[in-house]
Design a protein around this nucleic acid. Structure first.
Length: 159
DNA sequence: ATTCTCACA
DNA sequence: TGTGAGGA
C-alpha cells in the first residue's frame, strides 16, 4: 500500500511516516513510480514506534532498540543491552533536569500572576495608580517573588 | 487524486 | 511536524 493508506491505518501522518524513514526507523519499499510501498510488517513496526514514542523514548534510542529496519523482518526481541539501559537512564535524567527548570519557570510565572493580580486589585481601591506594567527595551526576567527585573542591554548615555 | 522532494515566516 | 511550491 502507498503512504496514504499506511497513514490512515497506522494513525501516523504521511509526514511522520516519511520522517521515520529519514530517521532510519523504517524502510518502506519503493514502487516503480518512486512511491513508497508499505507492507504489513512495516505498518506494525510503525505502530511499535509510535507506542515507544509515546512512552517518551527519543527517536535515537528507538532506533537502537528496534532491530535494524533494513534487514530483519519482524519486531523487537527482548535483547536489551546494559549500555542501552544506561542510555535510557541518561535520557530520563536529562528529562528530569529539564522538568526542574520548567517547574522553576512555572513557579516564577505563578508568582508573577499573583503579584500582578494583587496590583490590579490595589489599583481599583486607590485614588491613583502610578505604576503600571512597563515594558521597554532590553531583557527582563521574572523572579520567584513575581518581580519583573529589567535591565538595559547597554546603557547608551552611561560611560 | 496522490505522492515526491525540498525548504522555511 | 506542519505547510506550500512545483513537478510527475
Amino acid at each position: 500500500m502507498r503512504i496514504g493508506e499506511a497513514s490512515r491505518i497506522s494513525g501516523a501522518s504521511a509526514r511522520s511516516l516519511r520522517h521515520y524513514e529519514d530517521e532510519g526507523l523504517i524502510v518502506p519499499g519503493r514502487c516503480g513510480n518512486g512511491f513508497r510501498d508499505y507492507c504489513r510488517s512495516t505498518i506494525e513496526r510503525v505502530l511499535v514506534i509510535r507506542s515507544l514514542l509515546e512512552s517518551g523514548l527519543p527517536v535515537r534510542l528507538i532506533r537502537e532498540l528496534l532491530p535494524d529496519a533494513a534487514e530483519g523482518s519482524d519486531v523487537g526481541t527482548g535483547a536489551v543491552g546494559a549500555e542501552f539501559l544506561r542510555e535510557v537512564e541518561g535520557y530520563r535524567d536529562r528529562l528530569a533536569a529539564r522538568i526542574a527548570v520548567l517547574r522553576e519557570q512555572q513557579a516564577a510565572l505563578d508568582a508573577y500572576l499573583r503579584q500582578a493580580r494583587r496590583a490590579e486589585t490595589v489599583r481599583r481601591g486607590l485614588p491613583a495608580g502610578p505604576d503600571h506594567a512597563r515594558v521597554a527595551g532590553g531583557s527582563a526576567t521574572i523572579d520567584h517573588d513575581g518581580t519583573v527585573a529589567r535591565r538595559r542591554d547597554r546603557d547608551p548615555d552611561g560611560a
